[in-house]
């Protein structure tokens, strides 16, 4: 383990010695899904929970949501037990699958969840409008969720998670099923939530997504924490250094490399910086959109 968590005063979620044992029909212990883990999630931070399948991520999330009861240890969410109904007013949750009612439309889905928060009609209508715009689903507001693609259902799921403008947003694989543009939008949204002082707990298999948005991560393996800490600190290689140079004549570059070789006593690695595929894809799509708009006169 690289770092053990300490109790933080402004912790939104705090787990100490958390244990979850699944039992069989005869109450005999079957699986120790979470084994004595401790962590805390600070207010306003984006916290990533990583791990391979069966590592205990979902079990931990479900305990935080009150859908499972810890076998041992202490767990508080927003300062109270996860079972506390009032605390749930401040939580938004997007499950791994969207789990929506197939016979409701996007708007009705949001309306139903808004009603569960006792929102008055005008507030409800305004919030639904805002969220449908945010997830870009105004055009499909009256269509039944059963007719939606996975990506569209995901967007509705995300909108319902934000219906109450929650202080703690728990997102389980939020970008699953989304196209790269949707992924980018979700990541921007997460960063935006963080800027607004919201706390985000994110569980994902897509490590690039986690790296892009998380302040802190915890890596679970077979129910135990194997690594935890600030993303930049964990990923940084302190014994190595990268030097980025502007474009220059070959002769000049050779001269600099010669000096470096002489100073280091070894051959330095030289390559060209690369964009990641997501950045490249977004750039291509944006260019295509601009060209299309120019040729059709479409300003939108």
């Amino acid at each position: 383990m690289i770092e053990s968590s300490s109790v933080v005063e402004s912790a939104v979620v705090e787990a100490e010695g958390l244990v979850k044992v699944f039992r069989d029909f005869w109450r005999r212990p079957k699986v120790r899904a979470v084994d004595d883990i401790s962590f805390s999630i600070e207010k306003g931070k984006v916290f990533g929970l990583l791990g391979p399948n069966g590592s205990g991520k979902s079990t931990t999330l479900k305990m935080i949501l009150g859908l499972l009861y810890p076998t041992g240890g202490k767990l508080t969410v927003l300062g109270v037990s996860p079972q506390d109904v009032e605390a749930k007013r401040r939580i938004g949750y997007l499950p791994e699958e969207s789990y929506l009612y197939p016979y409701l439309s996007a708007e009705e889905t949001l309306d139903f969840y808004a009603r569960l928060f006792n929102m008055a009609r005008p507030e409800r209508a305004a919030r639904i409008e805002e969220l449908l715009t945010l997830v870009d689903l105004q055009y499909a507001r009256d269509r039944r969720v059963a007719e939606f693609s996975k990506g569209m259902a995901r967007r509705v799921g995300l909108a319902q998670a934000l219906i109450n403008d929650p202080d703690l947003v728990i997102l389980d694989e939020p970008t699953a099923g989304l196209d790269p543009i949707g992924c980018r939008e979700v990541k921007d949204l997460i960063l935006n939530l963080s800027e607004r002082g919201k706390t985000v707990l994110l569980s994902s298999h897509l490590l690039a997504d986690v790296e892009d948005v998380c302040d802190r991560i915890t890596i679970l393996y077979k129910g135990t924490i194997r690594a935890a800490g600030n993303v930049h600190e964990l990923l940084e290689e302190p014994d190595r250094c990268r030097l980025t140079l502007p474009e220059m004549p070959t002769e000049k570059l050779k001269e600099i490399l010669g000096s470096l070789r002489q100073a280091l006593g070894q051959e330095p690695d030289v390559d060209h910086p690369r964009r990641n595929l997501e950045e490249f894809f977004l750039e291509v799509v944006q260019e295509a959109r601009a060209a299309h708009a120019e040729s059709t006169g479409d300003k939108g």
Binding site: K88, Y93, P95, E97, Y99, Y113, L116
Partner: peptide, 14 residues
């Protein structure tokens, strides 16, 4: 069974 209850029970509903 279909897990819609996962959403319902994470809302402020007794």
């Amino acid at each position: 069974q279909d897990k819609q209850a996962h959403l319902l029970l994470t809302k402020p509903v007794r």
